[in-house]
């Protein structure tokens, strides 16, 4: 069975293959399709040697026309030697009539760079070419991806806000018990040394009973303010429940410092708080312990120690600070 041969005019070839090259047996570029001509103005393509214009990346080591001819029908990978060094996929066939080669090129994935580097339009691609569809798809998918990204950013912010809320005591804005347990556990596990102050308000119940919950709430908020003003950003202030507060002070393990801080807090808590025509008077009792970051002492143990010291303060007349030791 003989091969069916049809001859195409140059015009027909330009329509079917707008990115083809006709190369002579000696390697001279005789003709380039209209889209390729657009990439390299007059004189940079026609009449020049194929291997001077193109760097053949695959197959490697082919530098002669005879070598090239061996790869008829196979995939070529090449790029312009001068800038912009656009990359192409290609395939070549030997012209039936002569020693000439037809090399047809395509941008492949480098189309994304090519449309940036050259003024290309839909009409520069054969109507059967999927390039424009690919560009459409890339653009459509990018737009959709951007929507997903925005959605994720919104969800992420909502998640952070929800977590923040889940760890916050809404009345005072301090951390809540859950957050306190979390941070305490983390410090203990990581071996971070810290001071722990458990501070209970004294006479809080009286304020609540006498002046109502609104007064009680105000007192709790003022107490939180006092603590915030007297501590550092890296310290954790938590309302552990009711009128109980816990302060976690990383890297502060000097008992003297902690006692000073506790005393100062109590002093400030004792400043009368006006509520309407009334005055709220409270005080505080504190228990202090220290974690030196050594293994074997759990967060539960430390809270127990601070609690024990706190009750020693309460039992010795309130408005006091006690540091935990085995003898109390």
């Amino acid at each position: 069975m003989g091969a069916l041969s049809i001859s195409l005019t140059h015009d027909a070839r330009d329509i079917l293959l707008p990115m083809h090259l006709r190369v002579s047996g000696t390697g001279e570029i005789l003709h380039a399709g209209p889209t390729l001509r657009k990439l390299r103005p007059e004189g940079q393509l026609i009449g020049r040697q194929f291997f001077d214009v193109f760097d053949l990346r695959r197959p490697r080591g082919v530098v002669t026309m005879d070598g090239l001819r061996q790869h008829s029908g196979l995939r070529l990978s090449l790029q312009f030697r001068d800038g912009p060094d656009t990359a192409f996929k290609g395939v070549l066939v030997a012209d039936a009539s002569a020693s000439e080669l037809i090399v047809n090129l395509s941008f492949g994935i480098s189309i994304v760079d090519a449309i940036r580097d050259y003024d290309l339009h839909s009409a520069d691609f054969a109507p059967t070419d999927l390039t424009v569809e690919m560009l459409y798809l890339i653009e459509a998918k990018s737009a959709i991806l951007e929507e997903w990204r925005r959605l994720n950013v919104r969800l992420q912010s909502a998640k952070i806000a929800a977590e923040e809320q889940a760890f916050t005591d809404t009345l005072t804005g301090l951390k809540n018990r859950r957050a306190m347990d979390h941070i305490l556990g983390r410090y203990v596990d990581a071996g971070v040394p810290f001071g722990l102050i458990q501070l209970d308000l004294d006479y809080f119940k009286q304020v609540n009973d006498k002046l109502g919950h609104a007064a009680g709430d105000l007192v709790l908020q003022k107490a939180a303010e006092v603590m915030l003003r007297s501590t550092r950003d890296k310290d954790t202030l938590a309302r552990a429940g009711g009128d109980e507060f816990v302060l976690i002070l990383p890297e502060t393990v000097e008992a003297g410092h902690l006692v000073d801080l506790g005393s100062r807090l109590i002093e400030r808590l004792e400043v009368p708080i006006p509520f309407g025509d009334d005055i709220c008077r409270i005080s505080g009792s504190a228990g202090i312990t220290v974690s030196l970051g050594v293994p074997g002492v759990s967060a539960f143990d430390l809270l127990g120690q601070a609690d024990k010291a706190l009750y020693a303060s309460k039992n010795t007349g309130r408005g006091r600070v006690t540091v935990f030791s085995d003898t109390i």
């Binding site: 940036r116 560009l135 653009e139």
Partner: peptide, 8 residues
């Protein structure tokens, strides 16, 4: 232009 949107 083909080259605006995500390409530019």
């Amino acid at each position: 232009e083909l080259a605006t949107g995500p390409f530019s």
